[in-house]
Amino acid sequence: MAKVKRSPWLLHYDGSSCNGCDIEVLACLTPVYDAERFGIQNTGDPMQADILLITGGINAQNQAVVKQLYDQMPRPKVVVAVGVCACTGGVFKDTYNILGGADTTVPVDIYVPGCAARPQAIIDGIVKAVDLFQQHMDNHEEFLKNPDEYMKKNHPEVDFKKGE
């Protein structure tokens, strides 16, 4: 199976954060951490992205935006929440306009804690996301080869009929 994990492209969305985590995300791309070593690229374009990286919480205004960005990304895709704000709402949790962490809006796969999350932790989170990305792709290929068997093995609870 082809290795898609060598080329993870990120889409970084800044929710209602204090910008602390965003600075750390950008720090990952600087010479000190150089995330491009792993083929990681920071694209600004959901159509081309594989991993959605969210910093900051979700508020009433940006919920629709996050939802749309997630929908625009082609499958397979992985969502990483960076910083406690994106994980739970963090220090802003009880503010009147905050709905909570990123998982209130999109399915989050990886949580990277920290306030602000350190670049090491962010890169660690991305590397985990990359493995998950590969796994999604492998599962998809396996599914395409034999849908019935795949569903029986992995999701026995779902009544899957071909073509439905």
Partner: peptide, 22 residues
């Protein structure tokens, strides 16, 4: 910086070819 591997453009393209077409 150190930069990506030499074959990175190939990895990128082969990944793009496998993704869902929108």
């Amino acid at each position: 910086r150190i930069g990506p591997p030499l074959l990175q453009p190939y990895y990128d393209v082969s990944k793009l070819l496998q993704k869902q077409v929108i």
